[in-house]
Design a protein around this nucleic acid. Structure first.
Lengths: 269, 269
DNA sequence: ATAATTTGCTAAAACGTTTAATTGATTTAT
DNA sequence: ATAAATCAATTAAACGTTTTAGCAAATTAT
């Protein structure tokens, strides 16, 4: 016993598809369906457990009432919160959200945009990967709405929603300076994406303002090899002759790892 | 300039829809399309930037290659990790995942199952809400595959994947007993769902085994009023004449709140 | 009493696929 | 030389909607 369709209802009641469709869409006025007929149809629909088929609907009207969300890592609290709120909001407007994951992987970003394009999502919300620019450009060319989150590509004309990474970074560093730190290391992902470069710029600007900037204090981590790279970075900062008195971690994940290695070195934190 | 369809490719090359479709699905053998034609079609498809329309496809074949995931709270680490792994796995089999959220709200659970049914998802993975049983039953009646996660309804014949809450609870409590605790409070959500009742059962069984069980040590929290209820629970445990020497929190969220209030009371933790 | 308008509904095409049945051309077997 | 089999492609229906144009009957206006 397969799903009940508009046609089934129409037959059961002895009326045409069109009439049922109009009623189901609340267009009984425009379609001038009589009140009694509309009621009969609604009743029958409920009785038969009718569920509209959004695939057919989407095909016909060319929209899917779906938005595609591409995040870098859904298990990261920042992104899962983001996903949560986007979903809550979208739902209020009758939209569903398909959430996908790239794991900061450019190939996956390509794949995910394709999957979502195939599904005719009406728009994209994307946390782009480092070299994801071409895929975003492709969407824009196709006139598919896109908004970038957390990171953007300055050369592209896409809306974007950003945390003010630069100022957050400046603020944090100044606070450390006020606590008397002068030799502060930076542990940051190696990335050309704005959310990272902005934080780095904030760090450098503050240290230069205080005249204590040294390039050797910056350690860049490859996303693909976090554990190792962080270990090496911490060791080298610790054993350098820089007289370290503080470390600024660019992300929470880096700081967690960093603290682990610092504890192993019996640093007091 | 709208999307390129199979028909466009067919016209451009002077061949029928069917031929193109066969090639795009890798059925050139079964459909006996000549190698040269297949190549020409593939080349043209790439050139024209063809993206298949999954809505049309889904409508025709009656499947959507999509699975619907309904979790209680995507911003909860346990669930977002779950979502992450389900997605990774599904993707490998060519499935997409639509993730939705109930916030432990039964009405939302109803809504979400409807949304996903309308989208013809091929199967459901659900973390059910407390009174979500009827919606699960409805799915089963309709022969839509469902698997329950984290919580199950013993009366229903659905597959489920569970954490062994009972034994985890027993283990934790025994460990506390071994550390000498005897008057241990329980802070737990008021819920009939198995993941909670199992933990409670574990708690009671261990305390009874040691002959120290007192119903007054159990404090049940309403999910809809967490902050207040936890505060009251902690206060009442703390000021009771039970000589409290330990508290077992049933979930991480409860423990975080609990610790906050305990600190306010200057407990040492 | 006739014309004009409104009411209540229907017919049929379209969206982009997939697929069973068919056809005409070539090749192979007899 | 004809029958049988294989090949390469086509035709057309179907999936479940939405929507435009149209039609007959009922109502209102002249």
């Amino acid at each position: 016993m397969s799903r009940v369709s508009i046609k089934n209802i129409a037959q059961a009641i002895g009326v045409s598809n069109a009439t049922v469709s109009l009623v189901m869409n609340g267009k009984e006025k425009e379609g001038r369906v009589s009140k009694e007929m509309a009621d009969r149809i609604r009743k029958m629909a409920k009785e038969m457990n009718y569920e509209p088929n959004d695939l057919a609907r989407g095909l016909r009207i060319g929209r899917s009432q779906t938005i595609g969300l591409i995040v870098a890592d859904i298990s990261n609290l920042f992104f899962s919160n983001l996903a949560f709120h986007i979903q809550e909001h979208a739902e209020r407007f009758g939209y569903s959200v398909i959430i996908t994951n790239t794991n900061e992987n450019d190939l996956k970003m390509e794949k995910m945009t394709n999957v979502l394009k195939s599904r005719s999502v009406d728009g994209f919300i994307v946390v782009p990967t480092e070299h994801g620019q071409p895929y975003i450009e492709d969407l824009i060319e196709r006139n598919i709405p896109v908004v970038l989150v957390d990171r953007n590509f300055p050369e592209i004309a896409a809306s974007s929603v950003m945390v003010d990474n630069y100022n957050a970074s400046v603020k944090a560093l100044k606070s450390m300076m006020n606590q008397g730190c002068r030799n502060i290391g930076l542990v940051i992902y190696k990335s050309g994406l704005s959310h990272m470069t902005d934080r780095k710029r904030g760090y450098i600007d503050v240290l230069e303002e205080y005249g204590v900037y040294k390039p050797s204090l910056i350690k860049e981590i490859n996303y693909s090899n976090i554990t190792n790279d962080v270990e090496i970075a911490i060791e080298s900062l610790w054993h350098s002759e820089n007289n370290l008195d503080g470390i600024f971690f660019a992300t929470i994940s880096l700081s967690l790892l960093g603290i682990k290695y610092l504890m192993r070195l019996n640093a007091d934190i």
